[in-house]
Nucleic acid binder design. Sequence first.
DNA 1: GAAAACTGTGTCTCGCGGACACTGTTCGTT
DNA 2: AACGAACAGTGTCCGCGAGACACAGTTTTC
Lengths: 236, 236
Amino acid sequence: MAEAANDTVRLLWGPPARPTRGPKPALSLERIAAAGVEVADAEGLAAVSMQKVAGLLDFTKMSLYRYVPGKAELVALMVESAVDAPPDAPEGADWREQLTAWAHHLAESFARHPWLLDATVGARVLGPRELAWLERVVAALDGHGLTGPERMDAAVLLTGHVRGIAAQSRAAGPAHTPEAELLAALGTVVQEHADRFPAVAAAIAEPGGRDQALEFGLERILDGLAALIERRATTV
Amino acid sequence: MAEAANDTVRLLWGPPARPTRGPKPALSLERIAAAGVEVADAEGLAAVSMQKVAGLLDFTKMSLYRYVPGKAELVALMVESAVDAPPDAPEGADWREQLTAWAHHLAESFARHPWLLDATVGARVLGPRELAWLERVVAALDGHGLTGPERMDAAVLLTGHVRGIAAQSRAAGPAHTPEAELLAALGTVVQEHADRFPAVAAAIAEPGGRDQALEFGLERILDGLAALIERRATTV
DNA sequence: GAAAACTGTGTCTCGCGGACACTGTTCGTT
DNA sequence: AACGAACAGTGTCCGCGAGACACAGTTTTC
């Protein structure tokens, strides 16, 4: 498993590894990753198999193993390929504006590639792109009196929120999708058992502009961070 | 798929469905779910297969299908079986104390059954236990000037944070586990590329009591909610 | 030119989820 | 008391998945 970690690190971070003797490789990591992304975008991460990805490139399954040690590494490459480079921090923006823009951009990435939610659960090696997103958050919070671990914790907090929102809006999805069915089924269940779950039933029944969830949580988090920053500034 | 949703709802919410004619069932949903949980606790969710669960009960794989329509439903039952009932709200506790206790209890559930993280991604039907956790949050925020959707958003925010923390602490895991290897590999990578990720490198290098991440994010969220509640109280 | 190194392929194994037909058991009906 | 319907558990089968391995063809280096 330590081997697997090293393999992944080499694939994501290593040099292109050029000089070789045999026949020229007909494929490339980029093309393979792109094909995987194509499958995942169209049919979800579960539909990504070596066979399907190879088929899309008009190769056999086993030829992919000349480029990629296994499926886990393929998925890691797909993630790096699908994640956009993080937006540059606007020059004059304060930390709060930077983090707001950051969160919205990240949410857009998840919306464009919903399978990223499934592909980024659990412990894994971060690629350069993913790490760049983390870097932006930590950098935005530099110099405001937070300790290093606190800045990292804040990044985890923000990432977790965007993920949660992405999961929720994927579930809500376009109407008539299987996912929307599930959500509807849940609504029915809650209403049928309103006596056992009065608070949820009441909250659901109450009308109100939806799709504010990202903004709502983000504002709460940023308010909380602002309070901490202010406290640190005055007590130092 | 709508069928599948209904099946799951019936399994999780439906009555025990007793009166029958043929031979007595030798198994029960409870025993099956417990066996699944046992496998998942020991070897992870990926190791849960019909074969293994059935073998643990000294039955054949196919006999499980008499009780459970498919693997997805088995996992849903496992989740409901593994999730504790949410703690009762202490009588005199204000919303902030309630939510703090709630978050810690939920984090303990994730720590006890790390595979819950994998089992609760994506759209799915919530069971009674899971819904009860949601109910506690929404109920704790009742009567503080928040709209229904806002209370739901707050619940999503808190849940997302606890999930994020659980994922992180699972990755940190006990030393010498494969997961810990990955984390170590990431640290190495960051140091090697410190020029491209200076903020992260600095934040990691800086010492500081770890394992405060849950508390840190929770305090920020609750501070943010408190600010909103206060604002609502004064402007009404 | 020959050998070494490499690419892509075909074949094989194993484990998985699930369909289906079958035997055996139990209960409601007559 | 006997019969048939409804149900429980089993064995066999299929398709699909990841991956191991041996092989044939191609390119480079000596």
